[in-house]
């Protein structure tokens, strides 16, 4: 090995006592691991934090959730209160003189102050304008977001509960039970969810509750599939077998061993089902079978706005922007979470 051959550098003085046996204090602790040890959640959180888009999305979602929770307090006006004389007012933000946000509207070549024209008292301003019935758009968007998010969260919660239980039972039982439950899933997945949701809405009285039920009936299937597949995998892991051998009850095993290990996948699935529910609510309201008037949801607001969007485009674009921001944020966060929980992506 001519290349790797080295001779002791004579300039370094090696004292003979250096060749005494090392005592234990000289030895470094080899078991020490200098990379910080992280639990699954800490590790995921660390990776999520590195994903700027996901963090920003989380931040935006927190703001929107807070705004919709406190919508009755922060809304400047009553969302359902109609003042016909204040109908179709353009946005006006006090102190701003930018066209489009100062209460003026182009009429031919000149801009007229609609507020003055319609005799709105001095000091009353609608930040995002009013709709055809004189209701404050901002307040309606805040309340609409509240309704849309409520529907999405509750529907996602039902998806989660039904899907996880179905998947766990099916995967854990195995054999005939699993086979039967799988056949049911197979048949159900042949039904377009669109059709089921619409049929449910026709049968039930229109309203928030019906939409939630309709969404919950269709939404849990993919969750059940994923959970079953994972449960089948986990079931044969040594620690689960060990728990079984020790005589722990299936329910205890499910809560102590299975659900913690499924938590990543449950969170990801839920995070994807929330925007799906937001979309579906808006979709149903847009085609006219969603939330009945006068309750506002993002879908009904867009639908109302669409009817007049050639003349008063802001009535459609503001709620459309809100739904887009919500959907993008949920999807980005869900993507970020998926990457964060996926150890294969670990770097």
């Amino acid at each position: 090995m001519n290349n790797s051959k080295q001779t002791v550098d004579e300039t370094i003085k090696l004292s003979p006592d250096m060749f005494n046996p090392a005592d234990s204090s000289d030895k470094v602790d080899n078991e020490r691991i200098s990379a910080p040890s992280l639990s699954f959640l800490e590790d995921s959180w660390r990776r999520l934090k590195k994903n700027k888009a996901a963090v920003i999305s989380l931040f935006i979602l927190i703001i929107f959730i807070m705004l919709s929770v406190f919508a009755p307090i922060v809304s400047p006006h009553d969302p359902d209160f109609q003042i016909v004389s204040h109908a179709n007012l353009p946005p006006k933000i006090p102190g701003l003189t930018i066209n489009g946000l100062n209460g003026t509207q182009a009429l031919g070549d000149t801009r007229v102050d609609k507020y003055e024209q319609q005799g709105v008292p001095e000091g009353v301003s609608y930040y995002l304008g009013t709709d055809g019935l004189g209701r404050d758009l901002l307040s309606r968007i805040l309340h609409g977001t509240r309704v849309s998010l409520l529907i999405a969260f509750v529907a996602a919660f039902f998806d989660l509960t039904i899907g996880v239980i179905y998947g766990l039972v099916s995967g854990w039982s195995g054999g005939k039970v699993d086979n039967g439950m799988q056949r049911v899933l197979e048949i159900l997945s042949g039904v377009p969810n669109l059709v089921v949701v619409i049929l449910m809405l026709l049968v039930l009285d229109p309203g928030i509750k019906s939409i939630i039920i309709a969404l919950a009936i269709t939404g849990w299937i993919s969750m059940a599939r994923v959970i079953r597949a994972q449960t089948l995998k986990l079931k044969n892991q040594e620690y689960v077998l060990a728990a079984k051998t020790l005589g722990e009850s299936p329910i205890k095993i499910a809560f102590k061993h299975l659900i913690p290990n499924l938590s990543g996948i449950i969170i990801i699935q839920t995070m994807f089902s929330i925007p799906a529910a937001i979309f579906f609510e808006a979709f149903l309201s847009f085609i006219g079978i969603g939330i009945p008037a006068p309750t506002a949801s993002l879908g009904t607001l867009i639908n109302d706005g669409y009817k007049t969007f050639r003349f008063l485009p802001h009535l459609m674009w503001y709620p459309a922007a809100v739904i887009c921001i919500l959907m993008i944020s949920f999807n980005l966060l869900a993507d970020g979470l998926r990457d964060a929980f996926d150890p294969k992506m670990k770097d």
């Binding site: 090995m1 790797s4 051959k5 080295q6 001779t7 002791v8 550098d9 370094i12 090696l14 006592d17 250096m18 060749f19 005494n20 046996p21 090392a22 000289d26 030895k27 470094v28 602790d29 080899n30």
Partner: peptide, 21 residues
């Protein structure tokens, strides 16, 4: 290898050994 070496000497914990032929 010093921490796992039962023959480790003081010098092992201080200087990297060169190749001896």
């Amino acid at each position: 290898f010093a921490p796992r070496n039962e023959f480790a000497m003081k010098i092992d914990t201080e200087l990297e050994p060169p190749f001896f032929e």
